[in-house]
Design a protein around this nucleic acid. Structure first.
Length: 762
DNA sequence: TTGGGTGTTATTTTT
DNA sequence: TAACACCCAA
């Protein structure tokens, strides 16, 4: 039976059909309709199922119009998955009427509609990290700052943190106190003016400007609240302040906000990117009459794996109590394996996985190896290659970061948005066309002196007296080319759209730009040898254009809209490129029966995935928890959550390995086992030696045990100095030094092995 | 304009 | 160690 959108109670499906296969808490979450709802979903607890079922229930069970539903996720992958699963339980028409988007695409869409209200043109460009870096370098140059003292990445990170807190350049300047912050304030303001002049925004601006829009334009807010009456937010533990405010603004304005947040504080691993775990921990404070549902039953892992994870996470204080349980079998004890060094560790991993593959018939695609830092993948790769075991590395957005791909996209961006200086400067002489650095500098100087956008200077270069005839003609030729392209794509305002026989499709248009810009020849002739890989990548980009185009055309047809023009498709495509990375290009869906390959990735990248067999390597102090997170209790808890995420990815087999020695930065050093080792239930795990070398009888004397007994923040008593509090703890070699702030004598650094510190509980 | 020499630095990266 | 950015020379 298909129910058409908009139909009311007459055609409502009986609840039982949709609810029969749910557990009690799941049913509770699905059937909660009005008012705030928080779903605390442990790993593997069927969260996505609950969310999609809830959407189906709202539409089919309650009769809510699908266009009143807005579901927000963090990743495109999650959005795509959710869209797909919603599509399965609703009619196609209903499913298409719901809005399932990432925070950023949602904001981008709103800003396109209301660009003028926040000082943008609808053609604005979304700058990615590389674009941001270029813009920041320009800001540094303009202000004569040395990039040694102000590394662009660090400055941008500071600015990003500010924007996540909804602090704009002005507010930042007002609050800046230290030397660095004051300088950053100047850079912040310069950077924003560069972006503004380029009609460009960065990822954080999408959120910031959206919030500003909602705050300042009450009619827009009203319209959006009216449209999106039921709000679902996934991975709520990862929301930053801006996202919290945005969600709140949308949900407010009615007596009981219809906001449904799902997430798990124990899986919050992005605080360093601005995520604020308090958003989920304090949900009931923000929404006093919130209903809370806990999904604690796990359908993924064996009992022993779950017990290990649970024991670990119970150590955290910043959390909501939750007890994980499962009806799954007990399973094998998780293994903790000590290896000689990283090569021995890698060898053990490959051997272990090969055994699981051959004896237990687990396909390669059902296995994953996680590490804390990317650099650990190297020794693993070597071992996998040596043993001829198929593997893949999950790396982020490699494709769109390729030089040749970025070049072509830069052309498209400049065509869509002539103000985009960062990208204009990228392509102005790529490939070389006789517009030298000096020519560019002269034009920039002229632009600055006359307060003109660089694009205007290109339109008429003759007044730039510093240029010789050759330079002028080179610039004119280039500019004429840009104009020609724009005209044919219908990208020039106040001009009739192109006749369809000029440039009938976006794909053909992009191919034409590729050819006529000289990029194609440039990469073909590069160094004499046919640079086939680069050309192949460009070909792949064309394919993605075509893909986008046919999707857009099909969508228009379904919506009974006229076919979009090349100009609109170009804008849409560029937005997709900016907001969609290719992380989901991972092969080896464990559900598939193919043998596939083993997947190697960071612990962060593992979130949301599951594998029958998991190995976590580098279980050492300084790695897990990471060096930089040791001094701070909050960060230490995040490291614990990271390990928790890693452990809970495993369905049946879990192994954790460490090396006694590891070579880092070219230096081989003895390691100390992770402080978290003592937090795993000793009866519930099995320890083993890799057999790579004789085990060291003194190994057990290492300092780790002590270190974990005195995490920063611990209150202690010293026989001489009295009461104090551990400030930080550092391990070097076999010694553990603790810096303790004593109530009476101030700070002292003590060697834990000798200082007779005692814990004091209050 | 490119290449080589030098110096600096070293998590995690949903968008 | 190794990757990357930067600067200078040809």
């Amino acid at each position: 039976m298909t129910i058409e959108a908009g139909q009311t109670h007459a055609g409502i499906q009986r609840d039982d059909d949709m609810l029969a296969d749910l557990t009690e808490p799941q049913r509770e979450a699905v059937t909660h309709v009005e008012g705030p709802l928080l779903v605390l979903a442990g790993p593997g607890s069927g969260k996505t199922r609950v969310i999609t079922r809830r959407i189906a229930y709202l539409v089919k069970g309650v009769g809510i119009a699908p266009w009143n539903i807005l579901a927000i996720t963090f990743t495109n992958k999650a959005a795509g998955e959710m869209r797909e699963r919603v599509g399965r339980s609703l009619s196609e028409r209903q499913a298409r009427a719901t809005t399932v988007m990432t925070f950023h695409s949602f904001c981008a869409r709103i800003l396109r509609d209301y660009a003028d209200l926040v000082g943008l043109k609808p053609t604005f460009t979304i700058y990615d990290t590389a674009d941001q870096q270029r813009a920041m370098k320009r800001a540094l140059e303009d202000l004569d700052f040395s990039s040694n003292n102000f590394p662009p990445a660090r400055v941008l990170a500071t600015i990003s943190n500010a924007k996540n807190e909804l602090i704009d350049a002005e507010a930042f300047a007002a609050a800046a106190s230290g030397f660095f912050d004051k300088k950053v304030a100047q850079l912040f303001s310069k950077y924003q003016s560069i972006l503004r002049a380029s009609n460009a925004v960065d990822f954080d601006d999408l959120l910031l400007l959206c919030v500003r829009l909602l705050r300042e334009q009450t009619d827009v807010t009203e319209a959006l609240r009216d449209r999106y009456q039921y709000l679902l937010i996934d991975e709520y533990q990862d929301t930053n302040h801006a996202q919290f405010v945005l969600a709140h603004a949308l949900a407010s304005g009615r007596a009981r906000p219809n906001i449904c947040a799902t997430g798990d504080p124990d899986q919050s691993i992005y605080a360093w990117r601005g995520a604020d775990i308090r958003n989920i921990l304090d949900f009931e404070t923000h929404y006093p009459d919130a209903a809370i549902v806990k999904l604690e039953q796990n359908y993924r892992s064996t009992q022993r794996i779950l017990d290990t994870a649970d024991a670990l996470i119970q150590r955290n204080r910043q959390r909501k109590h939750k007890r994980l349980w499962t009806e799954n079998e007990q399973g094998d004890k998780p293994l903790v394996v000590t290896c000689a060094d990283e090569r021995d560790e890698a060898r053990w991993v490959v051997e272990h996985l090969t055994l699981l593959h051959d004896r237990q018939a687990i396909p390669w695609s059902g296995m994953a190896v996680f590490y804390r830092v990317n650099s650990l993948s190297r020794s693993l790769e070597e071992a996998f290659r040596a043993a001829a075991v198929p593997y893949q590395i999950a790396r982020g957005t490699a494709f769109y970061d390729r030089k040749e791909v970025k070049d072509l996209i830069a052309y498209l961006r400049v065509l869509a948005n002539p103000s985009d200086e960062v990208n204009l400067l990228r392509i102005i002489n790529t490939p070389a066309r006789g517009i030298s650095d000096n020519t560019v500098k002269a034009m920039q100087a002229y632009a600055t002196a006359h307060q003109l956008p660089l694009a205007d200077v290109l339109d008429d270069v003759r007044p730039v007296t510093a240029l010789n005839a050759r330079a002028v003609s080179a610039v004119q030729k280039f500019n004429a080319q840009l104009l020609g392209w724009r005209r044919d794509a219908g990208l020039i305002e106040n001009q009739p759209s192109p006749t369809h026989d000029t440039t009938p499709s976006l794909r053909m248009f992009v191919e034409r730009v590729l050819r006529e810009s000289g990029l194609e020849d440039y990469y073909r002739n590069d160094k004499g040898d046919p640079d086939s890989e680069r050309l192949a990548n460009l070909g792949e980009l064309i394919t993605s254009v075509q893909q986008y185009e046919s999707d857009a055309d099909a969508q228009a047809q379904l919506d009974e809209q006229p076919q979009p023009g090349v100009n609109n498709k170009l804008l849409g495509y560029l937005e997709q490129v900016s907001l969609v990375s290719d992380v989901d290009s991972l092969e080896g869906d464990p559900a598939r029966a193919t043998d596939g390959m083993v997947t190697l990735m960071t612990l962060h990248a593992a979130k949301g995935l599951e594998y029958p067999a998991v190995v976590i390597v580098g279980f050492e102090d300084g790695l897990i928890p990471h060096q930089r997170s040791r001094d701070n209790e909050k960060e230490l808890e995040e490291e614990r959550r990271l390990l928790f995420v890693g452990i809970t990815r495993a369905m049946r087999r879990l192994s954790i390995t460490r090396a006694r020695r590891r070579t880092i930065f070219g230096q081989t050093q003895p390691t100390i086992r992770s402080a978290f080792l003592n937090e795993l239930p000793s009866e519930g795990i099995e320890t083993e030696d890799s057999g790579g070398e004789e085990s060291d009888p003194f190994d057990r004397l290492d300092a780790t045990g002590l270190a974990s007994e005195f995490p920063p923040g611990t209150n202690v008593r010293h026989p001489q100095f009295g009461l104090g509090r551990v400030v930080n703890i550092a391990t070097s070699g076999l010694q553990t030094r603790a810096k303790v702030h004593f109530n009476t004598v101030g700070s002292k650094t003590l060697i834990l092995e000798y200082a007779r510190l005692q814990r004091v509980e209050f």
